[in-house]
């Protein structure tokens, strides 16, 4: 996973492992993932429910509460390991230099605070004492995300806004500190397609202006195809394939990536059966031995049932975890 052409990554995650404890033991929701994010880049982190994609995002932010626990790995933000920082030091980074946008803006905004108060609260937490300046920063930030009449909006409560407007407010709050890294966890999943288009357009514009790196967590392959520079596909706590968007989507090597792509109606003949991935993703406590995908995989063999594959990297800068990667030709 080395890349000599680009500048140094703004975020470099190595061997990150997050487990959830219960009475039976500790189950790894994120099982030793490596991720790098460069300034100005969009990394799409794709997976189905339970794949660990959101836990990965929360782990990078250091937002894992018991029964969850980050048990291994490094999260290097601008070269410094966030895992070695105290909660106090983390608080100063989080929300300003390292921002997160969540899926449901109704539950991330405080229902009893006006929009303006929620925004200036963030600024005063981070040492902004001048309240008039903070208020004008808040208005400016709302204007940047395309909210009409922001001077009036700051006096409103979240329930007075539509879902799209609330998500814009959440984004405006995330952008207040001009973050170097934005982690967006399914930020448009709850929205209609026309509003999704608006929000993505605003974020694309803002990111291009600020040069922030962005991790876009989603289950929607269509959105990351159109948005991301690189894609990481997660399955059962592992990044099973990662690489440039074109390589991953046009010539996937992991059978799961291929299965996901085939499951999406699009180029398919209307009415014809879709190629489907059989079965369900295994629950956290019932992950199989060997490759976690083998019970659903058409090309699984004995080695897949026994050994976790090693990560392979190809000439396109794409890596994958598979004993029997998909090839352009059928394997002998």
């Amino acid at each position: 996973m080395t890349d000599q052409i680009k500048p140094s990554p703004v975020l470099d995650v190595r061997g990150l492992q997050t487990v959830f404890h219960d009475t039976q033991g500790a189950w790894p929701a994120v099982d030793g993932i490596d991720l790098t994010l460069y300034p100005g880049e969009v990394l799409g982190l794709v997976g189905e429910s339970g794949s660990g994609k959101s836990v990965a995002g929360f782990s990078v932010m250091g937002l894992i509460d018991p029964p969850g626990e980050i048990t291994a790995g490094e999260v290097l933000f601008r070269g410094e390991d966030l895992r070695k920082k105290s909660e106090e030091e983390l608080r100063r980074i989080r929300g300003i230099a390292l921002a997160m946008i969540f899926q449901n803006p109704l539950s991330t905004l405080n229902p009893v605070l006006r929009i303006g108060e929620q925004m200036t609260e963030v600024l005063s937490e981070h040492g902004h004492d001048d309240s008039a300046a903070a208020a004008s920063l808040a208005v400016e930030s709302l204007r940047k995300v395309g909210i009409p009449a922001p001077e009036q909006r700051i006096h409103q409560y979240p329930h007075e806004l539509s879902g799209g407007m609330r998500q814009r407010v959440a984004i405006a709050i995330a952008l207040l500190g001009d973050p170097a890294v934005i982690i967006a966890d399914e930020p448009t999943t709850a929205l209609d397609v026309t509003i999704q288009g608006q929000i993505i357009a605003e974020l694309q514009k803002l990111q291009a202006e600020s040069g922030a790196g962005m991790i876009w967590i989603t289950h929607d392959l269509g959105v990351v195809a159109e948005l991301a520079d690189r894609i990481a596909v997660m399955y059962a706590g592992n990044i099973v394939e990662m690489g440039p968007t074109d390589a991953v989507l046009d010539h996937p090597r992991h059978p799961y990536t291929l299965g996901l792509l085939d499951s999406v109606p699009g180029d398919t003949v209307p009415g014809a059966p879709l190629r489907q991935v059989p079965g369900n993703a295994p629950p956290l406590s019932q992950r199989p031995l060997g490759c976690p995908f083998h019970p659903r995989c058409a090309s699984a063999s004995d080695i897949c049932r026994r050994d976790m594959p090693e990560r392979e990297t190809d000439a396109f800068g794409r890596s994958y975890l598979c004993h029997h990667p998909v090839s352009q030709k059928v394997d002998p």
Partner: peptide
């Protein structure tokens, strides 16, 4: 037309998302 333009597709790459004015 607007709705069809907004469907994300795995075949499109690096699109500049166009925006529809306003909300429902």
């Amino acid at each position: 037309r607007t709705l069809l333009e907004q469907i994300p597709s795995v075949r499109n790459r690096k699109r500049s998302f166009s925006t529809v004015k306003g909300e429902l």
